[in-house]
């Protein structure tokens, strides 16, 4: 954790985010500062601590049919649609 050597462009690509050069430069500096700040966690001895997790609860849904949306409502927000399908530029496999 010591070296906050974040590759902003690589990470933005993972997150499917275009960045302008100016943005990339600003973020590079700001994120390095933040990572420098969070590096203080290295000081904490966590050798015998389990990671935080929610309580174990069997809060399960019975397999019973519920209501779906009418197609026109389901698609009412879609930026592009045709034949009741949501349309996007051709997907590559």
């Amino acid at each position: 954790m010591a070296s906050p050597d974040i590759d902003v462009r690589y990470v933005a690509d993972l997150a499917r985010l275009n960045l302008s050069d100016a943005e990339a430069a600003t973020f590079q500096k700001q994120l390095s500062d933040i990572l420098g700040y969070v590096a203080q966690l290295e000081k904490v001895d966590v050798s015998s601590v389990a990671a935080f997790s929610g309580p174990v609860v069997n809060n399960l849904r019975p397999d019973v049919l519920g209501e779906s949306l009418p197609v026109e409502v389901a698609l009412s927000n879609a930026p592009q649609q045709e034949n009741n399908l949501i349309v996007v530029p051709k997907m590559i496999e």
């Binding site: 954790m1 969070v38 966690l41 290295e42 904490v44 966590v46 601590v49 389990a50 990671a51 935080f52 997790s53």
Partner: peptide
């Protein structure tokens, strides 16, 4: 992430 979740437990 994992270290942060441990400190969170503390």
């Amino acid at each position: 992430y994992n270290r942060a979740q441990k400190v969170r437990q503390l």
